[in-house]
Computed example of a mutant assay.
Amino acid sequence: MEAIEVKDLRKVYGSTPAVAGVTFTVHAGEIFGIAGHNGAGKTTTVECLIGLRRPDGGQRAGAGGGPGAPAPRRGAADRRATPGERAAGADEGGRGVAGVRRLLPRPPADWRQVMERWGLGPLARQAYGDLSGGQKQRLMLALALVGDPEVVVLDELTTGLDPVARRETWRLVNDLRASGTTVVLVSHYFDETEALCDRLAILARGRVQATGTPAEIMAATGTGSLEEAYFALEGADR
């Protein structure tokens, strides 16, 4: 069963193609990666997919938004708000914080139960600005789950985290998949997509260079890591 289908997605800024005919499918219940270095077209692809940007061509289905769909709200987190206040706000129709998108919502879960599940109960009254990096990422994931979504998109979720917080976030992403949620992971860290993703699409210059499991992509390029595979694919496309 396909959770998301994207075919020949295009977005042009002036004469520069940011997304040049991207095609991929996301299977229900998997962690699907959209990987590539900065400027590869990853975020523009996702923003077109979920309705934050209007694509110039192509088709997309299953992400809960068309060209005229209202965009999910994005913005900086209020440093004075507590995790409990942010979770309660999400329960009342909020859309989480920057970097997390909730798609295909089902009837909302009880935010208190979600907070406890993600170990945020004891922090519910603590100011957001006082949380550690790992606690903030855990809060963002919890906010995404208040709406009990079928699909979540995580955009550069571990940027700036220390190694311990990064590994903890990886565990939480795996927990999302184990709960039945489909995860789209957007990342420029190839070790991250190699460790977490069931399948992925590698982007460079707005085009998909390869899709498949990490093992399939490495085997096809004769490389020992996704980072090496990326450079092999990028060089072959020039």
Rank of each mutant, 00 (worst) to 15 (best):
S187A: 07
G36M: 04
R73S: 04
R138W: 13
L157Q: 07
K136L: 04
G180I: 12
D56R: 06
L196E: 08
G36I: 00
V186C: 07
D78W: 15
A69S: 14
Y13E: 03
G66N: 12
L200P: 12
P55F: 11
E47M: 09
A35C: 06
V19F: 05
R112P: 04
R73C: 05
G41W: 04
G212Y: 12
R205T: 00
V152K: 07
G121H: 13
A76W: 15
A195P: 14
L143T: 01
R54Y: 13
F190G: 06
T16C: 04
L157Y: 05
P163G: 08
H37F: 10
Y230T: 04
A28N: 10
R238Q: 15
G180D: 05
R102A: 11
M1Y: 08
A90Y: 06
G180H: 13
E234H: 11
V19A: 03
E92N: 07
H37C: 02
L154N: 09
E194T: 00
L226Y: 11
L233V: 10
I4E: 02
D191S: 09
T193Y: 15
V114G: 01
D198M: 03
P72E: 05
A87T: 10
P70F: 13
A165G: 02
P67F: 08
E85L: 04
A195T: 00
V186G: 09
I31Y: 03
A35I: 05
Q209C: 15
T82M: 06
E228I: 00
P72T: 13
T182W: 12
E168C: 05
E47T: 07
G89M: 06
G180W: 14
G133F: 05
D175W: 15
R53L: 10
R54E: 11
T25A: 14
E85Q: 14
V97D: 03
A229V: 01
P83D: 02
A88M: 12
E216T: 06
T213F: 09
G235Y: 11
R102N: 06
R80Y: 04
T23M: 02
G51T: 13
T82A: 14
V153M: 13
I4T: 01
I50M: 02
C48P: 07
V183D: 04
R95Q: 15
P72A: 09
A232T: 15
G36T: 01
P70R: 11
G39Y: 04
E116K: 15
Q137G: 02
G160R: 03
G121P: 02
T45G: 07
P163C: 06
L233I: 12
A88Y: 14
F32N: 09
V184I: 13
L226T: 01
R79Y: 05
A210C: 08
H37D: 03
F24C: 06
A3N: 05
S225L: 06
A69H: 10
A76N: 15
R73P: 05
D191V: 00
E216C: 11
L226E: 05
G89A: 12
L161M: 11
K11L: 02
V173N: 03
E2G: 00
I4F: 01
L176Y: 13
R167P: 13
V173Y: 08
L104P: 04
I31M: 00
Q209A: 14
E156S: 01
G57A: 07
